[in-house]
Amino acid sequence: MTLLSPEFVALFIRAFAITLGVTAAGLAIALLLGLPVALALRSRRTVLSVPARLYVELMRGAPLVILLFLVYYGGPSVGLLLDAPTAGIAGLGLYGAGYFAEIYRAGLNAVPPGEIEAARMLGLGRTQIFLHIQMPGALRLILPPGTGQAINLLKESAVLSIITVPELTKTAGEIANLTFSAVTPYLVAALLYWAAVETLARTGRAAERRLGAAQK
């Protein structure tokens, strides 16, 4: 059997799709969960800001593999039984949320307070101000590090192989065992990751350009 036999190609395609899928799911959780954490970080009430700060520091200080081990292997001892993909996506999402919270916070902080005062003077409510003034104003600052973080999550998703999620890295290992070619399957995997990362980076840059162009 050679590496390019149809069955291996099919395996690689399936594994690549799983990698993209778990990354997308983890990214979605990170994007959604990051926002309330960012708002809590910015809160004047310490009951909100202190736990949020602890959460962010925990997620940014810990390696993803340890978080995954805690959820996947440690979870059952507290009654949390998740299958590997679910644990992996949850871990990736919780981990990413810590980073996105900081990205959102920095973006929101950069919106000049006067722009919010102007909106308040015109009778806009808090939710309206958040949706129509603060978030769009912060977007310019959120987009570049946000793209970088999405790329990080894509690369970190390889760690899910350690808890047996059948994504690209895990599959490369299995193919290596079958073909007795230790390195080549991983090189193929690396190439696929690299292509996905480049695509994400280009998409992010294009979005930045469009955003800049719309305001110029």
Binding site: I151, K155, A158, I162, T169, V183, Y186, A190, Y193
Partner: peptide, 16 residues
């Protein structure tokens, strides 16, 4: 290459 691929994959390639 080194910034665009997972460290785990890089590690395995360097090892094998």
């Amino acid at each position: 290459f080194w910034r665009g691929t997972p460290i785990l994959v890089q590690l395995i390639i360097v090892f094998y």
